[in-house]
Simulated assay, not measured.
Amino acid sequence: MPKTSGSGRIFKNPVLEKLTRTHIAAPLVAFSAVSTYLLYQAVVAKGIGGLQVLVWFLGGLLLYSLVEYIMHRFVFHMPETTPARKKFVYTAHGVHHDFPRDKDRLAMPVPVSLALSAILFFVFRFAMGDFVYAFLPGILMGYASYLWVHYMVHAFQPPKNAFKIWWVHHGIHHYKQPHRAFGVSTPLWDIIFGTMPEQQK
């Protein structure tokens, strides 16, 4: 059963253990700044029109939400059929399921996520040219929105408005049906792929 308080340990080495912890503000600030810079470059330096920027940005958001769903469902919840898989799943995600209230384990370390972002920039620039300046910010802000929603769900009480949908959806994943409700930033792909929570009596 998930713990309502406390924190799990991933590494015995205290330095490595410290590096697994990230304050939620750090990635939110970093990706907002990077996205703003890239969008500025798209409009001012590359001369991409506003409508094109919006379409590519929304495309990045949509792609991020799909990748989020796929990673959560098929990577972080892969069958633990070997000791190596079991170790990977626990390190990447299982510790979060054991200690869902641990606020410092809700985001990937910023240096790691920025390095991945740099790789994505060059990959997408090769594929789509200057449109990467509008497309990648959509992905990065999709990730930032995931982080913010995820943090709010685990750190705050459910609100009494429409945003409660996210709390209920993710809460079902954690506490009732861990093999359903994989979408965090949106339930869209759960609806499309048939992994919405089952109705319980």
Rank of each mutant, 00 (worst) to 15 (best):
G138W: 15
I172E: 07
A45D: 11
G194Y: 12
D98T: 06
V132L: 05
M1Q: 07
A127P: 00
S117Q: 08
Y175F: 13
S117T: 15
Y151L: 04
G129F: 14
R101F: 13
S7V: 12
A84V: 06
Q199G: 02
V44K: 06
I70S: 02
D102R: 05
F11P: 08
H169W: 08
G138D: 11
D104L: 14
L140R: 01
R180K: 15
L120N: 05
K201W: 05
P27V: 09
F11G: 04
H154L: 09
P79C: 05
V149F: 15
S145W: 08
L140I: 03
I24W: 14
M71C: 06
L136Y: 11
A42P: 01
W167Q: 00
A45I: 11
H170I: 03
H72E: 05
L62S: 06
W167K: 02
A33F: 13
Q41I: 08
A181S: 15
T36F: 15
N13I: 05
R21C: 02
L16C: 03
L38P: 03
D130Y: 14
M1K: 14
I119C: 08
P83M: 10
G194H: 10
H93C: 07
S113D: 08
K87D: 05
I172Y: 07
A115L: 14
T81C: 01
K12E: 13
V43C: 04
A134V: 00
L16T: 01
H154D: 00
A134K: 05
V153F: 04
T4E: 05
R9S: 10
M1G: 02
L54E: 01
Y151T: 00
M128R: 10
Q200G: 03
A26V: 10
Q199R: 14
V55R: 11
F31Y: 15
A30D: 03
V43Q: 10
K87F: 14
P109W: 12
S7G: 12
A30N: 05
F99T: 09
I24N: 06
T186L: 11
A92Y: 13
V153L: 01
R180M: 04
S117E: 10
R101L: 09
H77T: 04
G59Y: 14
E68T: 03
L188E: 04
S185P: 04
P187H: 09
G47F: 13
H174C: 04
H23N: 12
F31P: 01
R101M: 12
